[in-house]
Design a protein around this nucleic acid. Structure first.
Lengths: 331, 331
DNA sequence: ATGAAAGCGCTAACAC
DNA sequence: GTGTTAGCGCTTTCAT
């Protein structure tokens, strides 16, 4: 692989001149000389070494993305959104999977710092501890988080409370009063917010909050299935279920059908996320649409602003939308 | 951010010594000195600059992954598999999305070369042209492809022909003779292979190959829905449909139900891929399981072998598996 | 407009 | 066992 030196020799100029034509704009260079250099570049198939350049410029044009798991649809969409704007701006992204493991998270941050990333986008898992925070400190002005984290970085969030309220109010309007909730981990702020929205909607309509209607899955269809089975075999079972995400909603529908209940006639089910398959489910699933890809693109735009030294909003809240399909048709 | 020089000063040693304790193994260093250095490292929160190290060592511990689209489940799983083994081996991955656009592919390769990646894993889209091939040339011994590409790099593949044969033979055993196929682009070797498997199964059972049973979708549920509608409104409609992937199979089931056909009683449907949701579909979808994550991990293992200068297999074929669920129960 | 040379932060000969 | 020094390939003053 040829280096700047080779090109300089070939074009009979100094390496400084080569650098100037390879990075146009900052300095003038004689058009003829430039042409000679460009010819040499082409002949030698020269490509500047980004490592060397980054070392010198203290700018790697690389950003780090820390997520729990890329094979999870939600994060894949986010990363897709990040990629889209990163590409256009000339940034590359280094991916770090953490499985939400605090040690992994800390390790990832250190690793990205070693690789001299220009910034970090963090999503999923928690970042509140002393370790991750102090590790992130050195990049303080170049970090954006997706989701609520109670830390002092610009945050891109989904209005989960409003979304959940939307879902449950929809169910209430349909005439349901006993509404089951399949939530998940108490450690997740997202889960907590969706639960809050559920409670809000009940309170606004003066319905009691009944603990026996609440259970916890783990975001998988399997867990939705299991929890729905439990919920539906109680006496005085709910006539509607609000599942914390579409995956669990699918599991819940499946459980209902297996138990001889019809959806939506005997049980209404609504999910959260609006994954692509939800409209092709049988019955098509009502849900709350979350603009995942936008979360990603917005976070990258924010990071770019941060890197440019701009003032950026402390919080950006993205709206959700109620999508009514067959799984919650009239009671 | 502190540099090796700061640590050296703090510990009252030379930078060479610091380097030696930071990268243990190669050289001996007095335990006491080492301890002093480690203390200084900790106090200054020193982290070696990976860029500088990579520049010197000509090894970045970073590999490039080129795929069409990370928000596609298939590629997300592959990348997940790659990540898993990359992490353990100390590699980071830089992601490049191409949308299968040849220009983007070439650009991605150049970009990764500039970033001095230690290797590249390529999946999806085509790589046969002169441009991408010559761009890849400089990394010749450090490239592995996933899927069939008729190029001289180690390839990790799925036995799509055998898988499709499996699917169609299953349908034939069930008594179906008119079996529709929803395929996709003729440019895709995967699509071609799955079509070949379909033809093989028919031939082995002396069934005719009827062009009117073949149509092309685009891997989305929408397209599966549309194509199934066409197939099912022909007179002498098929009694079974083999869809090129699960997404299209979902669409096909949906179309059938909309047309008043029962699945599997009036129409059997089988997909391909075995995405997680397929077992929670209503009815649960029969399909051919593809070990996507394994494809990723295997490709990374192969690349690591390549980097280590080992001899690696030219081709590794991964087996598929027939998963029978309700969507193809007896005719 | 162009070249010489310093230096980005690190590793690895090579001396001692 | 430890220090000195020469690069890795590039960008960027500073001269000219």
């Amino acid at each position: 692989m040829s280096k700047i030196h080779d090109v300089a020799k070939r074009a009979n100029v100094s390496i400084a001149t080569v650098s100037r034509v390879v990075n146009p704009g900052r300095h003038k260079v004689n058009p003829e000389t430039a042409e000679k250099v460009r010819a040499a570049v082409k002949e030698l198939n020269y490509r500047p070494n980004a490592l060397a350049r980054a070392l010198q410029m203290k700018k790697s044009m690389t950003i780090g993305v820390i997520i729990p798991d890329i094979s999870n649809h939600y994060y894949a969409e986010i990363v897709g959104g990040i990629q889209g704007v990163a590409d256009k701006a000339g940034y590359n992204i280094i991916l770090q999977n953490t499985d939400r493991d605090p040690d992994q998270i800390v390790k990832s941050i250190y690793l990205l710092r070693e690789k001299i990333v220009d910034g970090i986008i963090f999503s999923g898992g928690t970042i509140n501890g002393y370790e991750p925070l102090s590790a992130l400190k050195e990049l303080r002005d170049r970090v954006v988080v997706i989701g609520r984290h109670d830390v002092d970085f610009p945050a891109i969030m989904v209005d989960n409370i409003a979304g959940a309220t939307l879902a449950v109010e929809h169910l209430i309007e349909l005439g349901h009063s006993r509404i089951g909730l399949i939530g998940w981990s108490e450690n997740s702020t997202t889960a907590k917010d969706r639960l809050s929205g559920y409670k809000n909607a009940l309170a606004q309509n003066s319905y009691p909050y009944d603990q026996s209607l609440i259970c916890q899955g783990s975001l998988t269809p399997e867990s939705g299935y299991n929890q729905a089975k439990i919920l539906l075999s109680r006496e005085n079972r709910p006539s509607a279920i609000f599942a914390g995400n579409d995956q669990m909603a699918f599991g819940a529908v499946y459980a209902a059908i297996e138990m001889g209940l019809r959806v939506p006639e005997d049980l209404a089910v609504i999910g959260f996320d609006n994954i692509p398959l939800s409209s092709f489910f049988v019955p098509p699933l009502s849900t709350i649409a979350v603009p995942m890809s936008e979360l990603g693109s917005d976070s990258m735009e924010t990071l770019i602003g941060l890197i440019a030294g701009e003032q950026v909003a402390r919080i950006k809240l993205h709206k959700t939308k109620l999508i009514v399909r067959k799984s919650t048709l009239s009671k």
